[in-house]
Amino acid sequence: MGIKLKALLKSPWVFHLSTGSCNNCDIEILDCLTPRFDIERFGMVLVGSIRHADVLLVTGSANRKCIPKIKKLYEQAPKPCLVVAIGECALSRGMFINSYNCPVPVDKIIPVDVYIPGCPPKPEAIIAGIVKLIGKIKK
């Protein structure tokens, strides 16, 4: 494993993209930054611009308006960039599965590396998911 990859695993900066979620998943993501969980211990920082990000967190059910934007954001991210789908909506569209506005789940639009189920997933689950992602890359 090269030094650059090692550094990447030690400081993954996350960018948070909401594609029409009910805002509950987003709140759970922000919970990870609070004193109780404090993901800055692992070098994770929430950044505001996709150009600075290493991990793209996608929440919500990817509605029609959002699909071109998701693709564009993924193209704008500097590679290597990992994608994490958070919440039932992003995984399989959840309760919106029959909606006319949600044609495909997120992983049909961009490649997804880790799926974190739950509606919404607990912060512990999100952190566990990220740990699995890091374990996966290490192999």
Binding site: K4, A7, K10, S11, P35, D38, Q76
Partner: peptide
């Protein structure tokens, strides 16, 4: 100050190494 634990000692250096290994768009 915010009752958190905070990053490890080498974090700023690791950030710089990581950034220099990434794609410049």
């Amino acid at each position: 100050v915010q009752y958190r634990v905070g990053p490890p000692l080498l974090q700023p250096l690791i950030d710089i190494i990581k950034l220099s290994g990434k794609e410049t768009l």
